[in-house]
Amino acid sequence: MIILIIIGMSIVTMLPRVVPAFIIEKMQFRPWVNRWLNAIPFAALGALIFPGILSVKPDEPHIGMLGGLVAIVLAIAGLNVVLVVIGAIFTVYFLLL
């Protein structure tokens, strides 16, 4: 019985994640909708990263903010994502010394 419950829960969880991938692939959207959909990963990434920026050192949040600012500047400069992350990490590291 427990196996059937696990299989059922996995199917119910999987369907809403897999089905839209096949449906959206065949649909064509207006350009403004495509721009909005392309921005979603960046918004989600920002929502995941920003709390971490503030909690680098809870009693000194400016350290994380400076690391985030360096990452923004490096990203605007057009550097590779890996270099942006390394730049932010080194900035926070040197500020914590």
Rank of each mutant, 00 (worst) to 15 (best):
G68Q: 00
V18E: 02
V18I: 13
I6S: 12
L96N: 11
Y93H: 12
R17P: 05
I40R: 02
S10E: 13
I72S: 08
H62Q: 15
L15N: 02
L54Q: 05
Y93A: 14
V82W: 06
I40L: 12
A44M: 13
A44N: 09
L66T: 11
D59V: 07
G68M: 06
V81N: 08
L15G: 04
P41S: 01
N38C: 13
T13E: 04
P51W: 00
G68L: 03
I6G: 02
L83N: 08
I40W: 07
I89L: 10
N38S: 14
P20D: 00
F50G: 01
I23H: 02
Q28A: 12
P41F: 03
L96P: 06
I24S: 03
I24P: 03
R30W: 06
I23T: 10
I3H: 15
A44C: 14
V92H: 01
F42M: 07
L83R: 05
I24M: 12
S10C: 12
I49V: 14
Q28W: 11
E60I: 15
D59E: 14
L48P: 00
V84L: 01
E25H: 12
G67C: 08
W32C: 07
G46D: 07
Y93N: 04
P31I: 02
V70L: 05
L54N: 09
G46H: 08
V19K: 01
E60H: 13
N80H: 15
I7Y: 05
L69F: 14
F50V: 13
W36V: 07
V81H: 01
N34F: 01
L69M: 13
A39H: 12
I6F: 15
P58R: 10
V73S: 02
L54I: 03
I40Q: 07
P61Y: 04
V85N: 08
I23P: 08
P41Y: 01
S55Y: 04
I6W: 09
L48R: 00
K57H: 10
L48T: 06
